[in-house]
């Protein structure tokens, strides 16, 4: 039993069987990568975990509770944070305001009509936000309008917004997609540091094998909606089925 258990999950869109018989168990405090060629169902699987999609069959258990039928905000409150393929941040707000929102969500739950004390008077939360920004080297940008930042910075901000909630499980959807090599390496370093410092489980969907092999403790290969193999990284590299799936699709 892992912290996240996916059992016999299937999902059909019209005539397309996007997922079938997906079984997956993510162990606590590990980094589990899900890789696979385009159209393998990686994003569909992820969306089934966070409440955006409801699978037709099977079950998804997180920390002993089913997530099926719960809405995204409820699932976040259970301790799952998600980083998107294209950074989803509050672009109209400043970096600091972006950081305060997840902190309020964590402390006060899905909704609470606060009093009319000002945001800046929440000393404790402000210092937590500043600490987190310092950890991702963004403290100097805290008053910046987040829309005006580079894509790499937006990604780091989104990551910081997820981490500041201290989630049990962090879901990353291609966190380095479209990034320059230097930014990719920074992201890898950041994630490695997070893994070492915190008790956190990471599930990552990624195309970039460099990222996957630098981070993952365990890898699941998905092809045509079903898991092909699940093994440690060193065994995955030379696995004949994996090469077949990738090479067969790409060339």
């Amino acid at each position: 039993m892992g912290i996240l258990d996916v059992k016999d999950v299937g999902k059909r869109f019209g005539g397309l069987q996007a997922l079938s018989d997906v079984n997956l168990s993510v162990k606590e405090n590990t980094c589990h990568a899900i890789i696979g060629p385009n159209g393998a169902g990686k994003s569909t699987l992820l969306n089934c975990l966070v409440g955006k999609l409801i699978p037709d069959t099977g079950s998804v258990m997180f920390d002993g509770n089913s997530v099926l039928g719960r809405s995204p905000h409820e699932i976040n409150q259970m301790g799952i944070s998600r980083v998107f393929q294209t950074p989803e941040i509050f672009a109209d707000l400043t970096v600091m305001e972006n950081m305060m929102i997840p902190l309020f969500a964590k402390r006060d739950g899905a909704y609470r009509l606060h009093g009319i004390e000002s945001v800046s008077s929440e000393r404790e939360l402000v210092s937590m936000a500043e600490q987190m920004l310092e950890d991702v080297n963004m403290l100097d940008k805290r008053h910046m309008h987040s829309a005006s930042m580079s894509r790499g910075d937006k990604r780091r901000l989104e990551m910081a917004m997820c981490l500041v909630q201290n989630p049990k499980l962090l879901l990353l959807d291609e966190p380095t997609a479209g990034m320059a090599r230097a930014d990719t390496n920074n992201t890898i370093d950041l994630l490695k540091e997070i893994k070492e410092k915190r008790d956190i489980t990471i599930a990552i969907i990624e195309h970039d094998m460099h990222v996957v092999f630098s981070l993952a403790d365990r890898i699941t290969v998905l092809a045509q909606g079903t898991p092909l193999v699940e093994d440690a990284p060193e065994n995955i590299k030379g696995h004949p089925k994996v090469q077949e799936a990738y090479l067969g699709e790409a060339h």
């Binding site: 995204p72 905000h73 989803e88 509050f90 929102i101 739950g109 909704y111």
Partner: peptide, 15 residues
């Protein structure tokens, strides 16, 4: 203001 800015992020932030 967060609602105006990005409801998706709002949902996935637990709100």
């Amino acid at each position: 203001r967060a609602i105006k800015s990005n409801q998706t992020r709002m949902n996935y932030t637990g709100l």
